[in-house]
Amino acid sequence: MTNRALDDATAGDGLTVGAVASLVGVTIRALHHWDAIGLVRPSERTDTGYRLYTVADLARIHRVLVYRELGIPLNDIGTLLDAPATDATASLCRQRDQLRERVAHLQRMSDALDRMIEARQSGILLSAEEQVAIFGQHWQPSWVEQAHDRWGDTAQWAQYAERAAGRTAEHWQQIAESVDALNAELAEAHRTGVVPGSDQANALAERHRASIGSYFDCTHSMHVCLGRTYATDPGFAAFYDDIETGLTTWLRDIIDANARANGVTPESAAWV
């Protein structure tokens, strides 16, 4: 059927709109529209007035299809088809450059999604060696996997993964240095007898909550829950007590006191 139709056009008999639609894979409605706007008009007519497409018309249709596949608007396609060769070439070069930029943009989006997927699965886009180098010898890379197993289905883990996906080793180094500095101040405050609930203790508790905020948004109620975890989880307790003996309990106490000062009752605090 297709070969017969093409032979008819080549022989000068021309093709009807229905035959062309079947041949090139577009709708009759599209061909009528292209005719109406002057994009592709049938060059011949039958004795009874039916319009017929010639081989040259078919060639123009195929060029339209190529340009349309590139995302070029129909009005611009008409300009391209009718422009002198030099103008058409310049326009195509612009279209090509725009297309390449779109491809590059899509590739960047794809890469970002890959990083986010990996971050949601692994928690941090650093090798075990990089983690230890940045977070210190006390750091155990298995903690990230444990955190994923424990909180991987929560909104906070999703938020953490989104932020982790955009962080480089340098970003993590800055965060680690900030946390180390804060832990040193916490240890000094505990060592010098800063009382939970005092202005100084509350300010330190707020800074600690803000440091958690680099991973996910942390409310005062959630902060209290974290303080409980620090005091009851052997891993967390060992981490803080290695910095300063008794720091874990004191940190929980200043978190509770600061939460109370901000309208949260620690005894009934929940992960909200």
Rank of each mutant, 00 (worst) to 15 (best):
D7Q: 15
L80I: 15
L39F: 00
R96Y: 15
W172I: 03
V64L: 07
L113M: 15
C225K: 07
L58V: 04
T249W: 02
A9R: 06
G25R: 07
R29D: 09
A269I: 06
G12M: 09
L70I: 14
R63N: 03
L65V: 12
P141L: 12
V66D: 12
L70Y: 15
P84A: 09
M1D: 13
R207L: 11
T86P: 03
E145S: 13
D253K: 01
Q174T: 12
G166H: 09
A205F: 10
E145M: 10
S268Q: 13
A30R: 10
V264A: 10
P234W: 05
L80D: 03
R209Q: 06
Q156M: 01
L251V: 06
L226V: 08
S214K: 11
T48R: 03
V40S: 00
H105S: 06
L204M: 07
G197N: 02
P42M: 08
A261Q: 08
G49H: 04
Q121A: 12
F236A: 04
H223E: 10
T86V: 09
S142L: 09
R68C: 00
R51F: 02
T168D: 10
Y67E: 04
R191L: 12
R163T: 07
L80C: 10
Q200M: 05
T232G: 08
D153P: 02
Q173G: 06
E145Y: 09
A83C: 08
P196Y: 00
D114W: 07
Q174C: 07
T48A: 04
R260D: 08
R100V: 15
L186N: 10
W143C: 05
E267N: 06
E129C: 02
I37S: 01
D114A: 14
E244W: 10
L204I: 04
H138S: 15
A147E: 02
N75T: 13
R150E: 10
S198H: 12
G235F: 01
L106T: 10
R102T: 14
E130F: 07
T249K: 01
A11N: 14
R167K: 14
D180G: 09
L126N: 01
H33G: 03
A257K: 05
R45G: 01
D7F: 11
T86Q: 07
D111F: 00
V194Y: 04
T265H: 12
D76E: 13
I61K: 05
A231L: 12
A189D: 07
V179F: 13
D241L: 06
A238E: 14
T232C: 08
R29E: 09
D114Y: 09
E69H: 15
A176Y: 04
S122H: 13
W250H: 05
V66T: 15
Y240P: 05
L125W: 04
Y50R: 10
D111N: 12
L15N: 11
P42V: 06
A21T: 08
W271K: 01
